[in-house]
């Protein structure tokens, strides 16, 4: 085996682990938020340190590969994409943690009708589905699957756009809930950002794998 392939394999495995980890964090943040589960929220915050250390590990692997092997062509695109994908994943991890943090700060359980009206659950699910798509496409090296992700991002953006109006109306009617509603507002915003980062990940992945597609066309 070519020595650079050992390094590429290491990066590949670590990124795969990172995707799974971040996906799990996000999915737990949904459970925690929807059920106001503070115990789970603490666990998420605790696990965030693992996300951070994994991010550093991937960075280190990538730097090492660049410094020692001067990758070119597919290898170069892989390392560059993984560096970017890595930081996107880390941000998604951050958002999961932020949401967990909000769970701990919310005073009273938010009303179910409000939650439904801003489509909170749908939003969480979409974001998690995007990460599942990434995990699946990445593991099977399938850039076509990655492309499915863009439609979901559009829905997320739409929900995000509508949320302010819905929340504002609710707050006008129930001014005492303003504190908690702000957290809801922020959570939706975070989930929209998760969508943006997921989209970046897909784009970077396609940048890496695109040459392969062209190559097979030859």
């Amino acid at each position: 085996m070519n020595p650079i392939e050992v390094e590429i394999e290491k990066i590949n495995d670590a990124v795969l682990e990172m995707i799974e980890l971040v996906k799990a964090q996000l999915s737990r943040s949904r459970d925690s938020f929807m059920n106001s589960d503070e115990e789970l929220a603490h666990q998420i915050i605790h696990t965030e340190t693992r996300v951070n250390s994994l991010e550093l590990t991937i960075d280190k692997y990538c730097e090492n590969t660049i410094a020692r092997f001067s990758p070119v062509a597919t290898d170069l695109r892989f390392v560059v994409s993984m560096l970017k994908i890595n930081s996107d994943l880390e941000r998604i991890g951050d958002y999961a943690e932020s949401i967990a943090d909000y769970v701990l700060n919310i005073n009273h359980k938010l009303e179910k009708t409000l939650m439904d009206n801003v489509r909170t659950d749908e939003m969480f699910n979409l974001a998690i589905e995007m990460l599942e798509l990434i995990a699946d496409a990445y593991a099977t090296d399938n850039s076509k699957k990655m492309k499915k992700l863009f439609a979901k991002d559009k829905v997320l953006n739409q929900i995000n756009k509508e949320k302010s109006q819905v929340i504002a109306e609710y707050v006008l009617a129930n001014p005492s809930t303003i504190h908690d509603c702000l957290y809801l507002h922020s959570t939706i915003k975070k989930l929209e950002r998760v969508g943006d980062h997921a989209k970046n990940i897909a784009e970077n992945y396609i940048f890496y794998s695109d040459a392969k597609v062209l190559k097979h066309k030859k």
Binding site: P71, A73, A211, K215, K218
Partner: peptide, 17 residues
């Protein structure tokens, strides 16, 4: 050529494979 070679032979050569 170095980021996105069109031919597999080129890719293999420049990446040392």
């Amino acid at each position: 050529i170095f980021l996105n070679p069109k031919k597999e032979k080129t890719e293999n050569y420049i990446s040392g494979r």
